[in-house]
């Protein structure tokens, strides 16, 4: 979804079908689709192999079907993180002072799409696979931090939304003048706060290892996740920053039919 600031060479190309401010819409929708396929596949994989190979971490089948998936996830996460963040940084706009209002508006739309992709990943991590963890704890006896659901939830879903949140942050920082001039507090809160959820995994596993054996979901050892997710409310501030800037920018462009 990232493009640099050349005054919209692609606009006229796509312009026949899509208005200039929605230039990145197809990529946005494709990313939505790809993420849906990805998460659904992971859930289907759980359906296929969790009971048959994921009930005991000391079994060879667990190593084959689950730990191997874990290692693949780590590799994918490392590649995606490096690739996306490096791309966004190295293709940054070095001439932000020459940005036209229209292009800046278009980039606000693209930033909104990035954040939307981020919140879509937050959905899978914070809603579906998170509560599914409780369901899995009613089936498996927890004997490892790497359960068949944790391997997907903690070590893939969490890092992935952190990466996508980081992408939104980097996109804004490298392509939008106001975000480049100052560091947006709400955007930083909305990205770094939920990042702390990933860190809370350590607290959670420590708690379950040493002093909390029960699968009580509303237990205090889970509240680190809760506090982390409150920071998602920073999106309200991002919205306000976007709205005020867009109003200014709209005043700078001509009306068109």
């Amino acid at each position: 979804m990232a493009t640099t600031s050349e005054p919209m060479p692609a606009v006229t190309h796509i312009g026949k079908r899509l208005p200039w401010y929605l230039q990145d819409l197809p990529r946005y929708l494709k990313t939505f689709g790809a993420l849906t396929v990805l998460y659904t596949s992971l859930r289907l994989y759980q359906g296929a192999f969790a009971v048959s190979a994921g009930l005991d971490s000391t079994e060879p089948a667990f190593e084959q079907y689950w730990m191997r998936l874990f290692y693949i996830e780590l590799a994918v996460i490392a590649v995606v993180m490096t690739g996306l963040w490096a791309y966004l940084w190295f293709t940054r706009d070095r001439q932000l002072d020459k940005l036209s209002p229209k292009e800046e508006i278009r980039r606000y739309f693209t930033l909104t799409m990035w954040i939307s992709i981020y919140t879509f990943a937050v959905y899978w991590a914070g809603s579906y696979f998170a509560e599914q963890d409780n369901s899995w704890h009613q089936v498996a006896i927890r004997d490892t931090p790497f359960t068949a659901n944790h391997i997907i939830e903690f070590y893939f879903n969490f890092p992935l939304y952190v990466i996508l949140g980081g992408c939104a942050w980097l996109y804004a920082r490298t392509r939008l003048p106001l975000y480049a001039k100052g560091i947006s507090l709400p955007l930083t809160l909305a990205v770094f706060g939920p990042f702390m959820i990933l860190v809370s995994v350590g607290f959670n596993e420590w708690g379950h290892t040493f002093w909390f054996r029960e699968e009580f979901f509303a237990a205090p050892i889970h509240w680190g996740f809760v506090i982390g997710v409150w920071f998602a409310l920073g999106v309200g501030g991002i919205l306000l920053q976007g709205v005020t800037r867009l109003i200014d920018l709209l005043d700078q462009i001509e009306d068109a039919d």
């Binding site: 659904t40 596949s41 992971l42 859930r43 289907l44 994989y45 359906g47 296929a48 192999f49 009971v51 048959s52 190979a53 994921g54 009930l55 005991d56 971490s57 000391t58 079994e59 089948a61 667990f62 084959q64 079907y65 191997r68 998936l69 693949i72 498996a140 006896i141 927890r142 004997d143 490892t144």
Partner: peptide, 22 residues
Amino acid sequence: TLGLIILGFGGPVQTALAHGEK
């Protein structure tokens, strides 16, 4: 394994004998 992940299904697996009793 990667294929299985992408496809979401795979061949038969011997059902696990153990249930985290260790």
